[in-house]
Design a protein around this nucleic acid. Structure first.
Lengths: 240, 240
DNA sequence: TACACAGAAATTGTATACACTACTACCAGG
DNA sequence: CCTGGTAGTAGTGTATACAATTTCTGTGTA
């Protein structure tokens, strides 16, 4: 079909600045708005309205929405519109099961090839995590927490695995933010469990790392207030 | 942000015709062209040129390309263009590792909740598979083979898992088609191995099903002519 | 009142024009 | 010959206008 040459993967070694495009900015803002529940579950994303509010045209808004669909935050009905998902309890548990499976695999692999730099980076992230939790800075906390799990996936050395972990993490995050009550807790068990994982990696213990991940994530899942899922959608009372 | 109501998930029970949009048609054609190697690895997808050839505007072409990016068939460089991926041997093996992990999980879960209808459907797909292989109908064969693995994932009852299996399957498929020499074989070991999987499910044997999947997929991976990966990109000789 | 139907309104889907960026080829100066 | 700069060009990024589809609303009829 087309006949052009290839991009020459490494033709340029410099890391160019690549200022964020409108689409990227719109995507980031929409995603953040959904995660913070400014746009609640079930609400419609109207392209023109969002374009006006964000001061851009429909084109980048539309593209950003498609990315959100891909991430699993939004569902589209052709010729009808895009709507923020309303996850069911079952969907949350299912997504978590996939996450656990993928992260266990990552931990097992990482135990075999983790570098001292990786370990240092993971240690550092655990420290940051404790600090941000101390300040009750929700957004920063989730960012650091994500970074830890992504670093773990990266340490597996399997790029595809890292991408899939990133995907399922994004998907699970919205559930976490909707239903995770942990910010109300006095102490956060997460850093301790993260340390267990890193220690197993340091011992080069695949089974131990895998098990530590399993424990940690099942703990996280158990901590969600899933019995509150139904209450989260007041509109449902009208819908019946 | 927006204030509209929800889509009322099941407000309309009728399944509407939903004729395929331009974007869908372009997506299907591009994907098929890549899979059939009409557009080889490394080649650029130029929006305007494709739009002319397909008789549509750039808009649906652009959207279709983004979907291909999401599927992992294509990579984009901002302000430069979209290029068909050139998988390395490592990437192929990595993707396969993820696939094995996810499908093992699916088999394990499916053993616990598979229905007689599911089993019948799987049996049927194995039959079809043998037939299409007999006719050496490559395209039909891959379609049926995919259907089998997707049905297996579906039988797990975990929707998220099904989606992730579909994703990794799409990603692995392009590798299979580029490097799988099996159509030259006299006999195809796949149906037999598929039968092993289904039999384990019928016995409600999670460990057995998982193991059968592992054997089957590791077999498939081993069958790829991965030592030919390098030769697949003649342009590389120029690029050095 | 219930129902069918036509027209209007809202929103997405597509086409097209323009803006911006990155790369290329060429030319002058060392 | 090599280096650096400078139009020119190819191709993406964005804005806007128009077409198509769906849903809503009101009106007429049984």
């Amino acid at each position: 079909m087309t006949d052009q040459a290839d991009p020459g993967k490494g033709s340029s070694n410099v890391t160019r600045p690549f200022q964020a495009s409108s689409e990227d900015r719109v995507y980031a803002r929409l995603r953040s708005a959904i995660v913070k529940r400014y746009i609640g579950p079930g609400k419609q994303l109207v392209e023109e309205s969002l374009a006006r509010q964000l001061g851009v045209s429909r084109t980048p808004v539309r593209a950003a929405i498609r990315r959100l669909v891909y991430d699993g935050f939004v569902e589209v009905v052709p010729h009808r519109g895009a709507f923020v998902i309303r996850p069911t309890r079952r969907e949350i548990e299912d997504a978590f099961a996939v996450r656990i499976g993928l992260e266990r695999m990552a931990a097992r692999l990482a135990a075999g090839c983790v570098s001292p730099e990786d370990l240092a980076c993971l240690d550092e992230l655990i420290e940051e995590e404790a600090v941000t939790f101390g300040y009750r800075n929700v957004e920063a906390y989730y960012r650091v927490n994500d970074a830890f799990h992504l670093k773990l996936a990266e340490a597996s050395g399997n790029r595809t695995l890292r991408k899939f972990v990133a995907d399922v993490l994004a998907r699970v995050n919205i559930y976490l933010i909707l239903f995770d009550p942990f910010m109300r807790l006095e102490v956060n068990p997460s850093p301790e469990q993260h340390r267990d994982i890193v220690n197993a990696l340091r011992r080069r213990d695949p089974a131990g790392a895998e098990e530590a991940v399993r424990r940690h994530l099942e703990n996280t899942l158990a901590g969600l207030e899933l019995d509150k899922v139904a209450e989260q959608y007041p509109d449902d009372y009208l819908a019946v």
